[in-house]
Each structure stands twice: as C-alpha cells, then as structure tokens.
C-alpha cells in the first residue's frame, strides 16, 4: 500500500489489519510508552487547505508518537493566499523532503490528483477532499464500533448502523458507507430529502426520510454535522425544524437499544443535530473516537511508511 486515498483502495482484510495494528498500538502505548522509534528520520507533512482541529492534531500526534518529523502547513498565512497552485506547493514540499503528505482540500479528488500526477514521490493520505472521502475517519469509526461490539471480530455482519443528517455534503458518510458495507454491516442513511444525495440508490444502502421509524433497531447511530458552510441554498426551513425532525434529543436517545452507541465525527453543532444531553450521555463515544483516531492514524502511517521506500507509482516528471 503506497497511498490511502479512498476506502475503495483497501480490501476488508486490509482494513481489519489496520484495525488490529491500532489495537496492538493501544496495548503498547497505554502504559509508560508514549513514543515508539519506528518512523525515526521520516518526515510527515500535514498539508491543510481547509480548517481542521481534530484531524490535523490527530495526524500530528500520531506521527510524533512514531518519532517522525512533522511539518504543519496551513493554507492561511502561506503563499497559497498569494495564488500559489497545489502543484507548486506540493513540489516545494517534495523538495524539502517529505515521505508522506497528509492532505485536506476543499476540492473533491485533490488527494488523488496529488498521488497520480507524478508531482511528488511521497505517500499521500487523504484527510478529507471536498465532499468526497475521509478514509481515516471511517477507519477510526470502525475501530470504535469494533471496540464496543467485539474487539476481535473480522466483520460487522449483523450490526445495524444508522448514519443521520447532512449526507449530501458529508465525506465522512461516504467513506463510512463504503467501509461499513465492505465489512458487512447493515447500513441505513437517514436525512431530509434535500440532504440525501441524488442517486442514493447506487450506494447500495437503505435510506429513509424518517428518523423515528426504526430507531429501536440500531446498534450504532452516527450523527453528522450539518455543514452550514457548504450550504449555499436553503436545505431546510430553519434549525429548530431540522432539530425536531432529525436531531438526536433526549426522547430519541431514550428509545435506543440498551447497548446502542452514539457517534459524531465532530465538530458538533450542539442543539442542532445533537442535543447537549445526548452528546454528553453515557452512550456517546465522541471522545473515544478522538483518542482512537490517533491510534488508527499511527497504524496507517506505520503501514504506509515503515516498509522499504516504494517507487512512486507515477514517474517523476
């Protein structure tokens, strides 16, 4: 494995092997060991064209715990605001010697472009490209689900997962649907009709416009952030109306199965898609998701960088 651009790039077995590695890393780092020497001398560049708290900090922590050198790049305050292109920015990083580039970009396909253009020889990790994919988020969500529903299981057959909210703008939803399906889970996406993407039938998952219909049947309820910054038209009348139909409030929380967990990729709009009480309830695993994120990203960096230098898939121009 040279790059991680999409969940489509990895098999179910490879995904499980990443989750196994993350689980062993949790063992290894739970005691006094905070830092492993594995990636000493390697350089990881966090190339962030879009704002991020969790993902950037998480990749930063993951790389540092494996002793890699980390360079953080944020588009704000860089030459990007002077009009420098992705190509020139990437080649500058290449010239400085990057072994892996973790990229977040507002345009769908930016990571793939970087990986296949031949501009750089580094491993590319997609940390969110537009409304397309966010594969490490799906992996950390799967890791969290596995911890709660059987830490050694090699598939999710028999698990019912609801993904609720702003599906159309969500790269988290796309990556999660791909991975959960790959692992055999029974997935339903739930949203108002305006927030369900066109052609949802081709996703191969059930969809519903009614959150209240089958709420008792789910093992995992994954709430998505309403991405107001990507909404340039009216997708729902107002916040209160959205909340009433699709927000996870105390009443709905009370209807969930006894063992069901509530997930949210963050950042949360408290009071909009999830009530404060639900977000802070014992069923909420939001903070677990954050700590698991570091382990899963360590596992991904290990898989991509620990082995021999791999020849770039594209020839360097």
């Amino acid at each position: 494995m040279k790059h991680l651009l999409s969940i489509n790039d990895i098999t179910a077995a490879e995904a499980i092997s990443i989750l196994d590695t993350a689980a062993q890393l949790q063992n290894l780092t739970s005691g006094t060991v905070k830092k492993l020497p594995t990636l000493r001398g390697r350089t990881v560049v966090n190339l962030f064209f879009e704002d991020s708290t969790r993902t950037r900090l998480s990749f930063d922590a993951a790389a540092k715990r494996l002793s890699a050198d980390v360079t953080n790049f944020a588009a704000k305050g860089s030459s990007v605001s002077k009009g420098e292109s992705l190509k020139d920015t990437a080649q500058t990083l290449q010239a400085m010697g990057a072994d892996a580039i973790v990229i977040r970009h507002g345009a769908s396909g930016a990571a793939k472009r970087l990986a296949e253009s031949g501009w750089v020889s580094a491993s590319i990790i997609n940390a969110g490209d537009g409304t397309h994919e966010h594969p490490t988020q799906a992996l950390l969500d799967a890791f969290t689900i596995r911890k709660h529903f059987g830490p050694t299981r090699s598939d999710f057959v028999g698990l019912k997962v609801a993904i609720v909210g702003d599906i159309v703008h969500s790269r988290v939803a796309r990556s999660n649907v791909l991975l959960l399906k790959k692992l055999g889970a029974d997935v339903t996406v739930i949203a108002p009709p305006t927030l369900i993407p066109y052609g949802i039938e081709s996703w191969g998952v059930a969809h519903s416009f009614n959150l209240d219909e089958d709420l008792e049947s789910f093992d995992v309820v994954m709430m998505l952030r309403v991405q107001l910054e990507r909404m340039n038209e009216a997708y729902f009348p107002n916040g209160r109306e959205y909340s009433r139909g699709y927000g996870l409030d105390e009443v709905r929380l009370g209807r969930l199965k006894a063992h069901a967990i509530v997930m949210h990729p963050g950042p949360m709009n408290r009071g909009l898609e999830i009530s404060a009480a639900s977000a802070d309830s014992v069923r909420s695993v939001v903070l677990e998701q954050v700590s698991n994120g570091v382990l899963v990203r360590m596992a991904v960096l290990y898989q991509l960088l620990a082995g021999p230098d791999q020849a770039a898939t594209g020839v360097l121009a």
């Binding site: 063992n27 492993l36 020497p37 594995t38 290990y302 082995g307 021999p308």
Partner: peptide, 18 residues
C-alpha cells in the same frame, strides 16, 4: 516497532504486548 530492519521488509502485523 523497535526493529532495525523495518525499512528492509514490508510492514508486518504487530503481536500482543502484555
């Protein structure tokens, strides 16, 4: 994770530390 030949071989799965 402490091996000195990590870069000579493909990454291998980790075993349990107890």
């Amino acid at each position: 994770m402490h091996r000195d030949d990590l870069r000579l071989r493909p990454p291998r799965p980790l075993a349990e530390t107890v």
